[in-house]
Amino acid sequence: MQTTVLRIGTRGSPLALAQAHETRARLMAAHGLPEDAFSVEVITTSGDRIQDRPLSEAGGKGLFTKEIEEALLAGRIDIAVHSSKDMPTALPGGLALSAFLPREDPRDAFIGKTANSIMELPRGATVGSSSLRRQALILRMRPDIKVASFRGNVQTRLRKLQEGIADGTILALAGLKRLGLQSIVTDLMPLEKFPTAPGQGAICIESRIGDARVEEMLAAINHAPTAQALACERAFLAALDGSCRTPIAGYAVIDGDRLAFNGLVIAPDGRRAHGVSSEGSAVDAAELGRAAGEKLRRDAGAHFFDDWS
């Protein structure tokens, strides 16, 4: 009988804890284990501590994973639960993404204070967002709007909105649903006009390569279609050398054994953008993503990236 506690590493925000608890619940159900067979270990990351400037200026995506991965490599935790869109494309040696939970709705959600949608906002209104992708897409829709940088967890950003710092903000619908806050959404952003970040809506689980016990446990909860979609999206990001400094969107849809992918790179001011679409067999997910990224880099040209990197 399984008696060893499986230690789950996570950030301490309400959303991160909700994701860790979902992972625990799925493992409990898959293996018939009690809750006390698991412990949830909260680890503060650099990204949590840095609140005075955009992450793109502080070092990028790895700021939300570095300390958790260090604990995983040191054996202080057995698995790490992350938001997939926070994960750098290159992982530390000895670690791998071993499982993905079923993806939640990946769309972005607008929460308006003075209007229900971006298009209904008055000229010169302010929208808060810390995401360069969201900022660029907002400006593409409404060049007259001011974009303010909103850092912090979901609750912090919503408090800033209530304090009147902005007229609206955009958050991932998946996170709001996991927190039971979907009722505050005033408008949903359609994927064709407001394409999502690679990995958005998907929870991933990281573990040590070669840890057979953990790999066996995680295999039981891995959602293969989500894993295929993320293999495509992460390969697309890697081909573009995507980081927090790069306004990139990309989303793969799995339909049976087929995969369809749409990607976009956009200048921070929203005035220039290049898109790519591809489809093929889902088993070739990573290759499809890599090829799409390379095509987009060729089509956009090196100067497009140099202008704002």
Results as ranks from 00 to 15, higher is better:
Phe64Arg: 02
Met217Cys: 11
Ala29Gln: 12
Arg234Cys: 02
Asp299Leu: 10
Phe150Ile: 06
Phe304Thr: 03
Ala291Asp: 14
Glu69Tyr: 14
Arg159His: 13
Pro195Gly: 04
Arg53Trp: 12
Ala174Leu: 01
Thr156Met: 06
Thr23Arg: 02
Ala71Ser: 09
Asp86Glu: 02
Lys113Arg: 15
Ile170Gln: 00
Met141Leu: 11
Gly250Val: 10
Ala286Ile: 02
Tyr251Thr: 03
Ala71His: 07
Leu181Glu: 02
Arg258Met: 13
Lys113Phe: 03
Arg133Ile: 09
Arg134Trp: 01
His82Leu: 01
Ser83Val: 03
Ser56Phe: 15
Ala37Tyr: 12
Ala172Leu: 05
Gly47His: 07
Ser278Ala: 15
His82Pro: 00
Ile111Asn: 00
Ile184Tyr: 12
Lys113Met: 10
Asn262Trp: 08
Arg234Pro: 00
Asp144Met: 04
Gly47Val: 08
Arg76Phe: 09
Gly124Arg: 07
Ala58Leu: 13
Lys160Leu: 12
Arg133Thr: 10
Met189Trp: 06
Ala229Tyr: 00
Ile138Arg: 00
Leu230Tyr: 01
Ala291Lys: 13
Arg11Lys: 09
Ala252Thr: 11
Ile165Ser: 04
Lys113His: 08
Ile111Cys: 05
Gly152Glu: 05
Ala252Asn: 06
Ala166Phe: 03
Ala166Pro: 03
Ala249Ile: 01
Gly62Asp: 12
Met1Arg: 15
Leu132Ala: 05
Leu288Cys: 09
Val283Ala: 15
Ser278His: 12
Ser243Trp: 06
Pro190Leu: 05
Gln162Ile: 07
Ala74Arg: 09
Asp284Tyr: 07
Arg159Gln: 14
Leu27Thr: 09
Pro92Cys: 05
Gly75Met: 06
His223Thr: 02
Arg298Ala: 15
Phe305His: 05
Ala219Gly: 09
Val127Ser: 00
Leu259Cys: 07
Ala37Asn: 15
Leu95Arg: 09
Leu95Lys: 04
Gly62Met: 13
Arg290Leu: 11
Gly275Ala: 14
Glu104Ala: 12
Phe110Val: 04
His82Arg: 05
Ile254Cys: 05
Leu179Thr: 03
Glu120Phe: 11
Asn153Val: 02
Ser84Val: 09
Asp211Arg: 09
Pro143Cys: 03
Ala260Ser: 15
Asp167Trp: 00
Thr196Asn: 04
Ala273Gln: 07
Ala238Gly: 06
Cys244Trp: 11
Ala202Lys: 05
Asn262Glu: 14
Glu216Thr: 08
Gly32Thr: 10
His223Trp: 09
Ile170Lys: 01
Phe194Gly: 00
Met1Glu: 14
Val154Arg: 05
Ile111Phe: 06
Leu95Val: 12
Gln51Glu: 14
Ala99Phe: 05
Phe150Pro: 03
Asp269Pro: 08
Gly112Thr: 00
Val265Phe: 03
Pro14Ser: 10
Ala99Lys: 06
Asp86Tyr: 01
Ala25His: 10
Ala219Met: 11
His31Val: 10
Ala172Asn: 08
Ala300Leu: 06
Leu139His: 08
Ser130Leu: 08
Val40Leu: 14
Gly275Lys: 13
Ala25Glu: 12
Arg26Leu: 13
Phe261Gly: 07
Ile184Trp: 10
Ile203Gly: 01
Ala202Asn: 04
Ser117Pro: 04
Met189Glu: 11
Gly250Thr: 10
Gly270Ala: 04
Gly47Cys: 11
